[in-house]
Design a protein around this nucleic acid. Sequence first.
DNA 1: GTATAATCGAGACGGTACGTCGGGTCTTGAA
DNA 2: TTCAAGACCCGACGTACCGTCTCGATTATAC
Lengths: 202, 202, 202, 202
Amino acid sequence: MTTRRQSTPNSSRRSDASRRAILTAAFDLVGEVGYAKLSIEGIAARAGVGKQTIYRWWPSKGAVLFDAFLALSEGEEGEAALPDTGDLEADLKTVMRATVVELSDPRYDEPMRALTTEIAHDPGLAAVYRERLDEPMREIKKRRLAIAQRAGQLAGDLDLDLAVDVLWGPLLNRWLQRTGPLTPEYADNLVKTALNGLRPRG
Amino acid sequence: MTTRRQSTPNSSRRSDASRRAILTAAFDLVGEVGYAKLSIEGIAARAGVGKQTIYRWWPSKGAVLFDAFLALSEGEEGEAALPDTGDLEADLKTVMRATVVELSDPRYDEPMRALTTEIAHDPGLAAVYRERLDEPMREIKKRRLAIAQRAGQLAGDLDLDLAVDVLWGPLLNRWLQRTGPLTPEYADNLVKTALNGLRPRG
Amino acid sequence: MTTRRQSTPNSSRRSDASRRAILTAAFDLVGEVGYAKLSIEGIAARAGVGKQTIYRWWPSKGAVLFDAFLALSEGEEGEAALPDTGDLEADLKTVMRATVVELSDPRYDEPMRALTTEIAHDPGLAAVYRERLDEPMREIKKRRLAIAQRAGQLAGDLDLDLAVDVLWGPLLNRWLQRTGPLTPEYADNLVKTALNGLRPRG
Amino acid sequence: MTTRRQSTPNSSRRSDASRRAILTAAFDLVGEVGYAKLSIEGIAARAGVGKQTIYRWWPSKGAVLFDAFLALSEGEEGEAALPDTGDLEADLKTVMRATVVELSDPRYDEPMRALTTEIAHDPGLAAVYRERLDEPMREIKKRRLAIAQRAGQLAGDLDLDLAVDVLWGPLLNRWLQRTGPLTPEYADNLVKTALNGLRPRG
DNA sequence: GTATAATCGAGACGGTACGTCGGGTCTTGAA
DNA sequence: TTCAAGACCCGACGTACCGTCTCGATTATAC
């Protein structure tokens, strides 16, 4: 039997109850009052914790929030995979529609914006984000695309990282900047257009 | 046709010197200290202006910053157009490379991140942004794409708004989240891939 | 027929309506919100007058308030005299009781405290106060005392200025510092004690 | 009998260094710039203390100043007594002349005016003032008068509180309102007149 | 009987201070 | 040693007024 995997290196003295209370409080609060009004004091008060306990273990407000997200996605990792029915376009549409639903859920919208913009301003956080969240997710996506590529459904010389960008980038950008509404139809059109390209086909 | 005098409708009593000083100070400061450390107090001090003069005319820090951007892009509007050599792919690569250069310029990087994330958190600001900056720019892009479409270089049923998303979304997303480096090569590959699609061609 | 006596030297152009509105507003406001919260802006707003109109004619908040008091006591001056029934002690008690009543009237209490403390901090104002309000009142009091002195009811070598101090000083001090309640009995005892002295008689 | 350690009941966590620095700064500043220009911000800066530390422990600017006075008079209390040579008039003149000197000292004049006028406007402060400063001082004075009264030097039915008023009220009033100069002669005359009364003596 | 110049209401302006919030550090006493 | 609690110094918030400064729009003489 292996020891419990630990996402944050802990001193043996560290109170796990406090840690959990802080992450929960942070996630809840950012959804309630928004990122701008989120404060360490507020998190500490809500979590029933001294401010020092937060400062002792996290370097910044963004780091707490980030850990709160990590805690959420913990356990999903490793096993997750994109659906594979053999029909790439259909599978991607399914996934993209699910992403649309998730981004539209007010319960996740605010916290996710908070995390995203925090990352945009903090290169250090961005690096951790890439390593701990973005890369694993990207790997999952690339896995499905690689299967399709091997089956000749994607261009043989296609850079799969770029492919992920072309598929998800437009959606995330539209979400973040509210350039337009996020609908299942948009998800479908996006997948179709990205796959076929803007040029006319034969 | 009469010339436009005033880009922002002003009370007749408003001091234009103060307005300009504030916008300049805001833009400069956000580049120097970053958005997180940008303060109304700092802007006022740098601009040699009372705080009240800022609060009198702008509802928020983000709104000041936004106006600073507007002031920058003023005058360019209306005449601007994407290059048109007849070769769509080459033209788009030229534009996309220019965008890469601009986004890499530290003089614009911080302020643009600040504006972008501010918009992400403030729907009101987002609406103004769409109307005053995003839509005009998007129109310019769509104009070039429409020409190509009429020339049969783009799919006849292509939604040009979506096309703009597919072309620029990936780049902006990579920039904001620092998912990877912004290089001219990336710009080229992006354009090529978006035009041809992920699927194999002929 | 003589021309109207003018308490403040006026330019012929000065608007008397504004002047009156300002003094009224100042007096009313100091009674409503207290001296600490009395502001030039408030007075101007209440009087329906531009701030500059106040600054043009008065050097300070205290000066406005002072003029408001002058305006009140205008017209009384000159004719007023202390009662003279022949019985000095009775007459002084009457006057002192009236003073007690006036000082207890909430309509005058706050403004009078304001004026008094303003004078305490502003020697310039104090000088004007002495000349325009204190001296005239003191003269009236001394007139009555002089009559009594000539009638042998007061010590022949008595300094009447000091006598006024001894009679009214204790009352004003008790009022201002709230050292004790202001009652008619206190007024009576004060008069009696001041007249007879602290030493035993006879 | 145990020694008293703490004059003001303190939370156990309160920093006594800060408390003292604040009181000293307040007293010094009021003497330097006057009460009108005394600001919490200024006190905090001078004391090297955060503003919040002042707001945490005092409700108002006046309360700080008041405590500064209390701190000054601490330690003197209890032992102090008026001189008693057997000659009441001489003793009172001595005391009254000392008061004149103190009130004329510019080092005490401004702060004392500030305190007095603050008390005049704040009944709450006035109550504390009576209890902590006025009553103890008054008691000391009455003690001396009581001795004289028992010796037959003062009227048997004399109200000693009123006697204190009659002796000190005129002086304080003249000082505060600057009705006239404060001289040793005035002190002497005041004592003599108050003792003998305004009426002629046998 | 009109010019014309001082005065008016209004309110923007550069400032100072307000009283509050939260940042991040430090200390205390209990577990 | 860590924890909850919270005082501390500090910086910024957004507001209230300060006293100065334009702005037209009245007025009420002096032309």
